[in-house]
């Protein structure tokens, strides 16, 4: 597969930081989990939807422009592989995107920043909590398969924040 040169793609211009030309910020689990908890506590389902939507939108736009740059990624398979590499290198964890195609499928994640961060700060919960990752997946799939925002529904059926062995995401295209 095409290699992603993290050494050259994580770059600075003055005080700004970029990955493959897209402006990024580094934040730690305290902030990411605090934001999630604030949104969930204040807005309930609407807050969960906003977490999903923000990640979806950022990823759909980000990966669409990334795939336009990385023309050497010709197949959907190679694009999905690259997305998983970027997920890992961004510190979000491990995600297996092999089980998904244009119509949908199943995605597994054996480790993640949000799970580790949530458990460190708040311990186990009784509902699935990987809203960021659900949105991240939706945005990537929309970019890979050239679909509009909102095309994919992502349901997390198992979550490590609930003591499950891994996080499992069911993807359905509308």
């Amino acid at each position: 597969m095409t290699a992603f040169n993290w050494q050259s793609e994580l770059a600075r211009d003055g005080s700004r930081v970029f990955v493959a030309g897209l402006p990024v910020a580094m934040h730690c689990h305290h902030y990411n989990i605090n934001l999630q908890k604030t949104l969930e506590d204040t807005l309930g389902d609407e807050g969960i939807q906003l977490l999903f939507h923000s990640a979806e939108e950022a990823n759909r736009i980000g990966f669409t422009s990334f795939f336009n740059e990385y023309r050497q990624l010709k197949t959907n398979k190679s694009k999905l592989e690259m997305a998983a590499v970027i997920y890992q290198n961004s510190g979000f964890g491990i995600i297996h995107l092999q089980g998904v195609n244009r119509q949908g499928g199943t995605i597994l994640s054996p480790s993640s920043h949000h799970v580790t961060g949530w458990l460190a700060k708040h311990g186990l919960r009784d509902t699935p909590g990987c809203h960021f990752t659900r949105g991240w997946i939706a945005g990537v799939l929309e970019a890979v398969f050239d679909k509009p925002a909102g095309h994919y529904t992502i349901e997390e059926t198992h979550c490590k924040m609930m003591r499950d062995k891994e996080c499992v995401f069911q993807v359905t295209g509308v």
Partner: peptide
Amino acid sequence: VYLSIASVQYYNTLSFEFENK
């Protein structure tokens, strides 16, 4: 800490849409 690298657009949408709501 555990660090993550995310698009600034993600954080901005989250904050400003939260404020909008």
